[in-house]
């Protein structure tokens, strides 16, 4: 268990709803859920998660902290926004799921090796390098995230797609040498470090 998690447990004791309201993006809207289940029926990945958004919201109110933060549900969000536009109480469900995913990741309660968690981290780290996403190094990073052998297997499995894109000139092998970048990349690093520092201080994660 991470130090941040121990501190959070000590601080909020059994009031998980308050913890979510104070620390999770749009978390103050959780208590508006009236348990109708429209979100559950609207999610394209509905058959695949452990808990529907509706269940997650009730579990938050019931103080089921570990179960919520270690659930795979928020990592199944494709950001399709079906739940948001259909919710009769206008809860920003997609944003709350994103916020819960981020919080579970920061406290290190999200499952190790959760594939969407890994992809999200790779994506962010990739964009932070130059200020822009480098699709080649992002894809390679993805294939090789579970080691070299698995990486070769993954690359071979995706060879057809990769070659198709190369042939269509929509994947540039020269991007391996850095590729597109922002001129002000060090400024962007400072700017994001500052933003994270401010937000962590506010959320009690500093």
């Amino acid at each position: 268990m991470s130090d941040l998690n121990t501190q959070a447990v000590a601080r909020y004791k059994n009031n998980f709803l308050r913890e979510v309201e104070e620390r999770v993006e749009e978390g103050n809207m959780v208590k508006m859920c009236m348990q109708c289940g429209v979100c559950a029926g609207s999610c394209p990945f509905g058959p695949h998660w452990q808990h529907s958004p509706q269940k997650i919201f009730m579990m938050i109110r019931a103080g089921k902290r570990e179960e919520v933060l270690s659930s795979d549900s928020m990592w199944m969000c494709t950001s399709c926004y079906n739940c948001i536009v259909r919710c009769p109480r206008k809860l920003p469900i997609t944003h709350i799921m994103h916020g819960l995913a981020n919080y579970a990741h920061r406290l290190n309660l999200a499952a190790k090796g959760q594939p969407t968690r890994d992809v999200a981290r790779l994506f962010w780290n990739n964009l932070m390098k130059t200020g822009r996403i480098n699709e080649l190094t992002f894809s390679l990073g993805l294939y090789f995230k579970d080691g070299f052998i698995q990486g070769i297997k993954n690359s071979l499995a995706m060879q057809a797609a990769g070659l198709g894109l190369l042939k269509a000139k929509r994947l540039n092998p020269m991007e391996i040498f850095g590729g597109h970048k922002c001129k002000e990349k060090s400024g962007i690093h400072r700017m994001i470090a500052k933003a994270r520092e401010i937000e962590d201080r506010r959320r009690g994660l500093a």
């Binding site: 981020n102 990741h105 920061r106 969407t116 992809v119 999200a120 994506f123 962010w124 780290n125 964009l127």
Partner: peptide, 13 residues
Amino acid sequence: GASIGYGEGGELP
């Protein structure tokens, strides 16, 4: 930040 940036990047970043 795209639709997957939330995992590592919080709201403010």
